[in-house]
Design a protein around this nucleic acid. Structure first.
Lengths: 204, 204
DNA sequence: TTGACTTGTCACCGCATGGTGACTAATGAT
DNA sequence: ATCATTAGTCACCATGCGGTGACAAGTCAA
């Protein structure tokens, strides 16, 4: 007789494997059961269906980078850097962290098409994450009259777009968005944008 | 007996209607024939299938804003504005033009997930468009040591993301990306980013 | 040994999809 | 009037999907 826990694990593993292999386009109960080498009825029995499975999967992995990873393990240090400097470096680290996570990129792409349990969990994680990050700098908002929220929204959106688009496109705006060289240029410009932008106002 | 040209028109119209109504998720021969009120076999007969139809559709519409629209009908004027000013305003107008085109937004979303005949046409249009725009300012590249291409890639990506994301999301980064008020903040920050960024170097 | 329960297998259902072949009915040229 | 062509209808196919009910086999308690 089989082992229930082991089967559940096989199914959970298969979610990540299938997403990484074929993307969310072909994602479904049948394909999932095939990937796991398991009968699909067990997905319904053990997880109550796809939504429940995605929920379980979402809670069992680290799709999103931690604040520590973004801050090179030293968030405190960033509180004392000039604002433009800090924002720029955080954004660059954020982009690097996402580039290393193909699974997260896939989920982010999925999010553009339709919401589901997995993308919802990702969105919640990100929301809480963003708020904690923002709170870290809330005391320094008076340093500038720029709209910090809108600026980070813009630059965060830029990173998201390039990350997602890079899954199946090499060139955007005459620029290689999949090579390290191309990203180097983007990172550099990201830093310059932030530095120059905040330089116009008082800096801490 | 029916009218061939009229039927072809009905089918072509249905492409836009269906995309606007249900997005590309449910896009297919059957749904398309239903929308057009026509038998699906005619799609194969008249267009050789979906790819051919998309090609025809793509060549029969103006998804992409013209350079004139982006430049308020006066591109020459932009050549004499300070570089940061010009880039910023062009980007803002670009965003506004896209916000007005739900169909284009849908195709842009499609493009992020998978390429097809329609997105290819859009990409080619945009590529040529970008090159002409870039050429307009090529003579002034010496004014700055910034990486103009990378910067416009970033800010263009930002706009694309927010445009696409706005289709089914209200809030991003604690910001309303679907209301006019939210976009006002984004536009303002976009302008400031460009102004401040280019201000550090010599400006024309 | 009996009987309840669990794990897993299998066959099946309804439905939608992309795609094709056979047909009807109108048109127009000879 | 005849006959080929054309526009459009319809039935059908294989395939894949999400989802369910019936059942075999193995486990454990009474």
């Amino acid at each position: 007789m089989g082992n229930k826990e082991q089967t559940q694990q096989k199914i959970l593993m298969a979610v990540g494997e299938l997403l990484a292999k074929d993307g969310f386009k072909k994602f479904g109960v049948n394909a999932l059961a095939r990937q796991a080498g398991v009968d699909k009825v067990l997905i319904y029995r053990y997880f109550g269906g796809l939504p429940g499975l995605l929920r379980s999967f979402g809670e069992s992995a680290d799709f999103w980078p931690t604040l520590d990873e973004i801050a090179n393990g030293n968030l405190q240090e960033f509180r004392h850097k000039p604002l433009g400097e800090a924002v720029g470096e955080l954004l660059v680290n954020f982009a690097r962290a996402l580039r290393k996570r193909p699974l997260t990129r896939e989920i982010m792409a999925w999010e553009m098409l339709e919401p589901n349990e997995l993308t919802t969990i990702l969105a919640e994680t990100r929301e809480e994450w963003a708020q904690r990050l923002f709170a870290t700098f809330s005391a320094r908002l008076t340093e500038t009259d720029l709209d910090l929220l809108a600026i980070t929204a813009l630059l965060g959106a830029a990173i998201n777009y390039l990350i997602i688009r890079g899954r199946n496109t090499q060139i955007f705006n005459l620029l290689e968005i999949n090579s390290d060289a191309g990203w180097k240029r983007l990172e550099e410009s990201l830093l310059q944008l932030c530095r120059n932008c905040f330089a116009g106002t008082a800096d801490g």
